[in-house]
């Protein structure tokens, strides 16, 4: 099966400037996403999820390692990278910065079809845009409004999704695309993504919500402070996680009628080079002063923990 996204030892360091120390967003990591598959990047704010998406799209060049998108280097100049990027749809995390402020909702949704080199005429583009706006639950009364001005955050987010889907891209990269939606709307958008996967389209989905991740993806990668701590089928990460951090993520997630469990709060930043969960882990031991490697622990599962299968926390 074709590899659509492949990362080999990709790390990223944001350069310091004017007295600000450089900041490591990602420690070198590797994973791949095959055609017709779906993968979630799960983690809290600052874990590196958004940086990873930007690297895959070539919006940022990694400081280490290589990124391949449809077989091309997405950050390289030239036709090949451009063609690869055009096969992608991207829903940015921030719908306030993600829309052209002067276009109407309808024109903003049609714009990706009308980029230079496109052979689609305006009328057809708008017809497709109208269909997508309907699928993304945007009321017709909003279509003439300025996309970047008069809409609520949730509405803008849905315009961003319509824009990302209007070209029917082979790969959709969606960064928390339902974070501002009501529960009912979120359910309908989840169904939209599920239908897309059922047609064999590829999905890379960023979220901090493992339940949401399970609804739309087969596999997930859990990131913490720029490192992969666990990878496996999304269902397993929710119900049979190996890494204590993944278990904490699942336990902290509000579920109907179930009590919440919070791990002990962070005592301070994790020392450089240590396991990224060392400051909050209930199973901490001396070995955790150095970051454990990500190793294969079962068929299709990888985890980075010195205790390969730590006991369930008691109490």
């Amino acid at each position: 099966m074709t590899e659509i996204v492949r990362l080999d030892g990709v790390g990223h360091l944001f350069a310091g400037r004017g007295g600000i120390a450089p900041s490591r967003a990602l420690h070198p990591l590797s994973f791949s996403l095959h055609e017709s598959r779906s993968l979630a990047l799960v983690g809290e704010s600052g874990s590196g999820k958004t940086t990873l998406l930007r690297l895959i799209l070539g919006l940022e060049e990694p400081t280490e390692g290589t990124v391949s998108l449809f077989g091309a280097d997405p950050a390289a100049p030239g036709e090949e990278a451009l063609r690869a990027r055009r096969r992608c749809g991207y829903v940015p995390q921030d719908p306030f910065g993600g829309l052209p402020p002067t276009l109407s909702v309808l024109d903003a949704a049609a714009e990706p079809l009308l980029l230079p080199g496109s052979d689609i005429d305006g009328a057809l583009a708008r017809r497709q845009a109208r269909e997508l706006l309907r699928l993304c639950l945007l009321e017709e009364s909003l279509w003439a409004a300025r996309a970047g001005m008069s809409l609520s955050g949730g509405q803008r987010q849905r315009v961003c999704l319509a824009r990302a889907l209007v070209t029917d891209p082979d790969l959709l990269l969606a960064d928390e695309p339902t974070s501002m939606q009501d529960s009912q709307t979120r359910r309908r958008l989840v169904e939209l993504l599920q239908a897309r996967s059922a047609r064999g389209k590829t999905l890379l989905f960023v979220t901090h919500d493992l339940v949401l991740a399970r609804a739309v993806t087969e596999r997930a990668v859990v990131l913490l402070r720029g490192r992969i701590v666990e990878e496996g089928p999304t269902e397993d990460l929710l119900s049979r996680a190996i890494h204590p951090y993944t278990r904490a993520l699942a336990a902290a997630l509000p579920r109907l009628g179930q009590p919440l469990a919070a791990p002990p709060p962070a005592l301070g930043p994790a020392p450089p080079g240590s396991c990224p969960f060392v400051d909050r882990c209930p199973h901490r031991m001396p070995a955790c002063a150095s970051a454990p490697p990500l190793r294969s622990v079962a068929e299709g599962r990888r985890a980075a923990c010195w205790q390969e299968a730590p006991q369930k926390p008691t109490g």
């Binding site: 359910r187 599920q194 399970r214 609804a215 999304t234 109907l256």
Partner: peptide, 28 residues
């Protein structure tokens, strides 16, 4: 809380609950 979850008194509560349950039960 328990009563509302077990026996919602209004259709809107039911649909809010359904939306959550669908998501929680939703396996890819």
């Amino acid at each position: 809380t328990e009563r509302l979850l077990d026996a919602p008194g209004h259709g809107h509560t039911t649909s809010l609950l359904e939306a959550l349950k669908t998501l929680e039960a939703s396996d890819h």
